[in-house]
Amino acid sequence: MTQKDPKLLIQPGPQLRQQMTTPVVMRDVWYALTPATLAGIWFFGLGAFLVLLACIAGAVLVEWYFAPEEKRGYFLGDGTAILTGWLLGLTLPPALPLWMAFLGGVVAVGIGKTIWGGMGANIFNPALVGRAFLLATFPIAMTTWTAPGDFFTIPSSLFALPLMTGVVDTVTQASPLGMMKFEHVDTPFIDLLFGNTSGSLGETSGLLLILGGLYLWWRRDLDWRIPVGILGTAIIFSLILFMVDADKYPGPIFTVFSGGMLLGAIFMATDPVTSPLTQKGTWIFAIGIGLLVVLIRVFGGFPEGMMYAILLMNAATPLIDMYTQPRVFGRELDQK
């Protein structure tokens, strides 16, 4: 039926095609993530790179296994599984045993995406589903942060046998958020900006994450309302708290540049599948995340709240979409 390189293509509309297909967008996101990723690997060493690879391997394997046989090539080709694994890897501590990272990748794509029916059908951001699973499953390993160290030293905890504990032998250090929450120690802004702090391997460098976001915005792959809404809300809310009691609550700059705030706001909340479709809905979504993050960080039991904030608003997305449907042109407001 289909002819290779047909002379004349006759098909129903739309005839006008543009270049913005899923693989193209995915490539753009890869390019945007690369600087921050390289910075993470630079600060945390080759071990961080291995953690990333393990996540991607787990994600891709599940994607490949559950894809219908005839579509296997295509399913990998669109690059979403690689991106899911990659994003998950960026949210993990750099000294996490590789088998856990691999398991995270499997859960991210398996439970986060495939089980819902594949790309476009999932409710929750797959990478964050993987991370939530890992955090609930291995709470200690997932909150053991190593200080940035020598490039070539690979923490031996990475090579723990499956099901076994990885003993962290490198220098551990509380993340800036943990220090703020439990000990009220501030981290210098310049470290937060460039990423020379402990934390997840891809979230530490604020500057490069923002650069990646700007690139995506320039390529029009990203709805600017989401990051702007999240960060704006977080800044305003934390500023209010900061003005109430500067000793007790962190300031807005710390709020924005610490933890997964930038990574989540730019690369995860903006996932088109799990964020609202309408403009009004997008604002509600973004403001909700901003409020929840600050609430969880300041008043909750956990030092970091970005993951739960995004997942909660993911869950609210269908509802938001339902209530923000624009009026169909030519119809009265109260008509159904």
Binding site: A136, T137, F138, A160, L163, M164, T165, G166
Partner: peptide, 28 residues
């Protein structure tokens, strides 16, 4: 917990999957 009927299976270095003995583990 790395046990079956209270008998340890994997030795001391086992990393427990905490989620499995919590309610979400039941659902999963």
């Amino acid at each position: 917990v790395g046990e079956l009927f209270g008998i340890a299976l994997f030795g001391a270095n086992f990393e427990p999957w905490v989620i499995m003995i919590l309610p979400p583990g039941g659902f999963i």
